[in-house]
Design a protein around this nucleic acid. Sequence first.
DNA 1: GATGAATGAGTCTTCATTCAT
DNA 2: AATGAATGAAGACTCATTCAT
Lengths: 183, 183, 183, 183
Amino acid sequence: MADEREGPRPNRGPAAAADNRRALIAAAREEFAAGGLEVAFSAIARRAGVGQGSLYRHFPTKIELAAAVFEDNIDELERAGSLDALFDAIVAQARMSAAFLDAVVSARDVPAVQHIGERMAVLVGALLAADQAAGRVDGAIAREDVLLVVTMLARTVAAAAPEEQADVLTRSRALFARALSPR
Amino acid sequence: MADEREGPRPNRGPAAAADNRRALIAAAREEFAAGGLEVAFSAIARRAGVGQGSLYRHFPTKIELAAAVFEDNIDELERAGSLDALFDAIVAQARMSAAFLDAVVSARDVPAVQHIGERMAVLVGALLAADQAAGRVDGAIAREDVLLVVTMLARTVAAAAPEEQADVLTRSRALFARALSPR
Amino acid sequence: MADEREGPRPNRGPAAAADNRRALIAAAREEFAAGGLEVAFSAIARRAGVGQGSLYRHFPTKIELAAAVFEDNIDELERAGSLDALFDAIVAQARMSAAFLDAVVSARDVPAVQHIGERMAVLVGALLAADQAAGRVDGAIAREDVLLVVTMLARTVAAAAPEEQADVLTRSRALFARALSPR
Amino acid sequence: MADEREGPRPNRGPAAAADNRRALIAAAREEFAAGGLEVAFSAIARRAGVGQGSLYRHFPTKIELAAAVFEDNIDELERAGSLDALFDAIVAQARMSAAFLDAVVSARDVPAVQHIGERMAVLVGALLAADQAAGRVDGAIAREDVLLVVTMLARTVAAAAPEEQADVLTRSRALFARALSPR
DNA sequence: GATGAATGAGTCTTCATTCAT
DNA sequence: AATGAATGAAGACTCATTCAT
């Protein structure tokens, strides 16, 4: 949003707050997807067309920003009707998911992060139960196992070079299908 | 090595070349293990007790340094007699392995990296064939699948918070055991 | 006051003016006492529970705010019955006094500052005359000398490290007692 | 030194180290004298005509830089033959002295600062003993008292507005003369 | 070939000040 | 007149890279 703008922005006043927040989240989503969590805070502000100070006001830490982005993403994940669909959705957001998962490790005490963790746990728990009831997933598999699979998938796909993505994706999905399927 | 040294080093001249190389690799191994690839070049040089310029001369890029470290690590991996033993060895070097694997993505054209890729492929190929012959691994598994497993294991263990490592390790090993075992 | 408040304040409109002014002075007193004049304007507004804009409206410059705080402090100083009692009172407000005195230097032309200067001069003049009449202070001492002593005391005590305060205070009081006492 | 230079400096190599250190100390002396310890580190580097990184290499903290400057100043103080002469010298360096004294408070554990403290203590001790032997200073005065006087003088003169300096100086010297003179 | 200092670009972060509502 | 968000200009600090010796 408002990329490449020149000159000082006018001060639009408090009315800009909501717009700014949205723009920051959108900009962060793109930056994180492109460069992981390493991206410069200043780059996000710039891309959002928002002053640095405003970025800090809305999101004092990068974690909180990442959480806000991922909170949106989860909406989409929650539309999945099976673990397989969840994996599809995760892979579609792989880079962002991986970035967020990295952040989580160092900040499990941040409320915003915990909230997401809970949503994910609930979601995975429900899908797992359904898949197990339908005989699609082995009864020995626990929620934690699935969360691990989700994490691995995201990281693997995110890290793959473009030309390898397809192959890596097929192979890892197949591996995890074997790992989860009933004996 | 030669940590915490005080005062200027004497200039030992060309004679120091081999020693320097060894010290740099050792220092890099420790730094990478402790902080991933993010560590500052200067920190590695300092820990090695070597001038910054010398570090650049020996290893113009971080990739080449990482490759040199990993080249040593592979010696150890090659002592594995089964995929299971290989996984054990990888996990023991998880942080370093993950760091290297991250670096690889952006530099598959670097000769040093390619060389390592080939050694890994050969190693994994041999172990896989043996395990398959012994009926320990399903015949449908390909070398690329195992390389993927290795990568995932390293990343997963490296990224886990200390208090979770044990659990994460158990779960992922179990998952991959299911994924690889014969049907 | 109104520290640590959560959520947006209701906009009480003009009715809040007097309350705001009081709250700002109180907040500034605490902040200045704790951190000297360096404290951020925003911190004062936050502690006062007042919008930043309102702070600027009431006190366009930090000097004016400091003067308002000190104006209150002088009420207390005026209860002193002798120079010694004045020194006691100054020392009790050392940090705030020193902060204000620092500000004064760069703004002797600000009306609010001048007013305080006059009150102080009058106060010191009266106390000095009384002490001289009572034979407690040498006749050669002028009002300006005492003002200097006041300033030095405030600065010295304010600058001392906590563990030294007692010693520094004793010594400086003794020094000035010698300096002022009749020959 | 090398103020107002344009464009990137050539890298003069290690040979510049000693020059840089000198230039940094000189620049810091001027900046501290003009603006106290608050001056921006970057301003000092700029004035010295030295890269920021080099400033940090030579002096990791502002305290250490201030100590280096003051270490030079003490040479001059040590030429004093009496406390009166010492006071003259202090006043001549008032702004710098005051700046340094401010720094000292927050860093009495820094070795460089301690060293200066010791030199000052020795110097003052010697001058005090001589002055007391000559009957110029009361026997009840201790070294700590004189150090306090030095500090007060520096701060007072440094803080005075230019047009007041003369008057403030005369008065405070007279006050301290009374405070120290034999009964 | 080794050494380690120099350089400056790039980030993060804080604040004073402005301004729409 | 109050409110609090917006803005951007500093300043601190780090580091990759270069280079004289």
